[in-house]
Amino acid sequence: METIERIKEQIAENPILLYMKGSPKLPNCGFSAQASQALMSCGEKFAFVDILQNPDIRAELPAYADWPTFPQLWVEGELIGGCDIILEMFQQGELQTLIKETAEKTQTEENS
């Protein structure tokens, strides 16, 4: 599959998705570490893609997303932002609300 198709599929199939360097347990970058930490604190399941293991995605996602850096948080197919936005939303309590609502919505859809 073309890289761009894989990206689109990941974004479409995972309502909460973090593109990051490393994994939430073993992040390879300070910004990815902070972002995944904030996301984990929301207490809901989320998907992640380690872009260091996927150099093709690392190369192509910035253009597709119109966002030059990583991490990138995607919720329901929409780019929310990078580390600074994630942290600021977390401090304001907005991230928790967004993530909880998305998780609830997804669960209801799965059960129905």
Binding site: D66, I85, M89
Partner: peptide
């Protein structure tokens, strides 16, 4: 925020 960041980027 995302719009502000995009403008700077």
């Amino acid at each position: 925020l995302i719009k502000r960041h995009r403008a700077i980027n």
